[in-house]
Design a protein around this nucleic acid. Structure first.
Length: 271
DNA sequence: AAAGCGAGCAACCGCGAGCGT
DNA sequence: GACGCTCGCGGTTGCTCGCTT
């Protein structure tokens, strides 16, 4: 089966949007609300494909978008979430409602990736030269404390989840209540960082075109790759992976140099 | 002052998921 | 269950602008 083009290539305008086009798009969405993007070009007369309209709205015109420099807090949050979630920019963006996934992705690729690389390089240098005070050790301390707290809480939640499973003799995947109980506990992982997922669509009441968090458990479902399909189809308890990761991390021991590396690497593999 | 270069960011593209028929 | 349509995501591209030479 050949995938049809998302839009006719003929007569479709590309490139930067003009203010006039923005006005047309915004006024249309104000009237009809976002969604049904396929109909937007034909109804507005915009010579843009539906995808382009959606993207323009999502990344630029949508109300409540914060533009400009990222704060330190936001930066740390992104780094933390990236370590946990990987390159799931939409999931990360759900914890920074005022930022778009595209923005975060760009910021990561242009600023943070570079920054972290620099830090890692610096840390290697310092490590090899035997100096104790390094930039990394400063940030590492903060990271470790948070991670240790997170891991401790995750482990407790995991134990709870596993004990529920054992009592019941069934996987928590098939038991929503057990699943909810455990994930709610693990959600404290993120609360410690003051992270609150976007609980609803944008302030305009529009169905945000970004995937919205509809359940308090969704961040964790996302975190552990436990979407509905995973819950329904997976035959393996999801916490087994988490458990082995936690064991790996714990076995390294607190306060050791490799603690952070193991935690981050493990999280990267896990998620 | 002008050309070259690199960083940053907006936009595009391809793919996969979800949903309705 | 198969198929087609629509939407959303993540990777990538290419344009713009500021800095350097």
């Amino acid at each position: 089966m050949v995938r049809p083009p998302c839009c006719d290539k003929d007569g479709v305008k590309k490139g930067p949007w003009t203010p006039e086009e923005d006005i047309v798009l915004v006024s249309y969405i104000q009237e009809h609300g976002p969604g049904n993007w396929r109909a937007v070009p034909s109804n507005t007369g915009l010579m843009r494909c539906s995808k382009s309209c959606r993207l323009r709205w999502t990344n630029y015109l949508r109300p409540g978008i914060k533009r400009g420099n990222f704060t330190d807090q936001e930066e740390k949050l992104i780094v933390h979430l990236q370590a946990l979630l990987g390159n799931r920019w939409a999931a990360i963006a759900s914890y920074l409602p005022a930022r778009t996934d595209n923005d975060i992705k760009n910021y990561w690729n242009t600023h943070l990736k570079k920054k972290l690389k620099k830090l890692e390089g610096g840390a290697e240098c310092q490590k090899s030269s035997g100096r104790q005070q390094s930039y990394r050790s400063i940030s590492k301390g903060q990271w470790e404390r948070c991670l240790q707290t997170d891991i401790h809480m995750a482990k407790r939640a995991l134990c709870e989840a596993l004990s529920i499973e054992e009592c019941d003799g069934r996987s928590s995947i098939t038991r929503p209540s057990a699943y909810a109980s455990s994930t709610e506990n693990i959600s404290r992982l993120l609360q410690g960082w003051g992270i609150a997922p976007a609980s609803s669509a944008s302030s305009q009441g529009s169905a945000s075109t970004s995937r919205c968090i509809t359940s308090p458990l969704e961040p964790l479902e996302s975190l552990f790759g436990l979407g509905d399909s995973a819950r329904e189809s997976s035959s393996e308890p999801p916490f087994s992976l988490l458990e082995s990761w936690l064991l790996d991390v714990e076995s390294v021991g607190n306060g050791q140099d490799s603690f952070l590396d193991v935690a981050i690497d493990g999280a990267g593999e896990l998620f």
